[in-house]
């Protein structure tokens, strides 16, 4: 009974609360800039409005362009069934689920990129080219970080890794955990197209990565993409929180609210980073991602000492 409750609450929380993360980030940024800013629930209003609008399709596009938002949203929804919140199993947890999650994200990338190329716009081609470059570097960082965590906790699924984090581990092996956290934070920023990798609020198509790839989507298609971007942010934040917080010491009634709160803290931190930093020059972004790879390898080396 308890297990089933956890299994249902986890994806439900993600699906309901994910757009709020974007609202929180905008709220933090507005406060930093001394503006009043949008209401916290603005992303929900946006989604609602977009879902009820009509769509315009470019005459260059084919069925690929129409399939893209649907495939992206389906795949990301599937990932929300894999990543646990707090501890306990999810509906789709099995040994090796982290590989499936990473590759579902790869499927999303594949479709977003070909969807962008389908419009024939050179700006969208530019965004697609950058997306594949940066994510090809973020991918090894993510995998090595997961290998380090797998070694640290001797388990190969998200739910087991999250459950194995204990306060004692922080006392004895904080180096690994800290380095993995640093690597995952960089991966989170890169995969979700946040500053310093990409600026979601820039006004110039030449400098965008993610936003420029979905320039031509409108109506429900755009709503799907917006929602999947929010879910993706939620997923990475949940992974980060799961790798850091020792959930095993709490009963599940507490651990789930605590991790939800922690996810929102992550979004506040992202907002702070975005308010204080500028976007890196695009030629410098690979260095940042190399750093993530290097940190993940360092974390892995630290797992050898015990």
């Amino acid at each position: 009974m308890r297990d089933y409750a956890i299994m249902i609450i986890q994806p439900a929380a993600a699906m309901v609360l994910a757009p709020m993360l974007l609202g929180v980030i905008n709220w933090v940024k507005a406060n930093f800039a001394g503006r009043r800013g949008q209401p916290l629930l603005q992303p929900y209003y946006d989604l609602w409005k977009l879902l009820h609008k009509s769509a315009v399709y470019s005459s260059t596009t084919s069925w690929i362009f129409k399939a893209m938002p649907i495939v992206c949203l389906s795949a990301i929804l599937l990932v929300t069934f894999i990543i646990p919140l707090g501890f306990g199993k999810t509906i789709l947890s099995f040994n090796g689920d982290l590989i499936l999650a990473a590759y579902l994200l790869g499927l999303i990338r594949f479709f977003i990129v070909i969807g962008a190329l389908d419009t024939g716009s050179s700006f969208e081609g530019m965004g697609a080219s950058r997306e594949v470059q940066f994510s090809a570097l973020a991918e090894p960082a993510f995998f090595i970080a997961m290998a380090a965590m797998a070694r640290q906790t001797s388990s190969i699924s998200f739910s087991n890794i999250f459950s194995a984090i204990t306060p004692q581990m922080w006392a004895t092996n904080s180096a690994t955990l800290l380095l993995v956290t640093a690597a995952i934070v960089i991966v989170l920023l890169a995969e979700n197209s946040r500053i310093p990798v990409d600026d979601p609020n820039t006004h110039l198509e030449l400098t965008m990565i993610h936003e420029v790839m979905i320039l031509d989507n409108s109506g429900p298609d755009f709503a799907f993409l917006l929602y999947s971007a929010a879910l993706k942010l939620w997923i990475f934040a949940a992974i980060l929180v799961g790798f850091i917080l020792p959930m095993n010491v709490m009963p599940w009634q507490i651990s789930i609210p605590v991790s939800i709160a922690a996810i929102f803290v992550v979004s506040i931190l992202i907002g702070i980073v975005e308010s204080c930093m500028a976007r890196l020059r695009l030629v410098r972004v690979p260095h940042l991602l190399f750093t993530a790879v290097a940190l993940a390898i360092l974390a892995l080396i630290f797992t050898f000492r015990n």
Partner: peptide, 14 residues
Amino acid sequence: GYGLSLLMGPFALA
């Protein structure tokens, strides 16, 4: 280069 230098780091630690 800086990218290569960064990747050299883990190998040096190993």
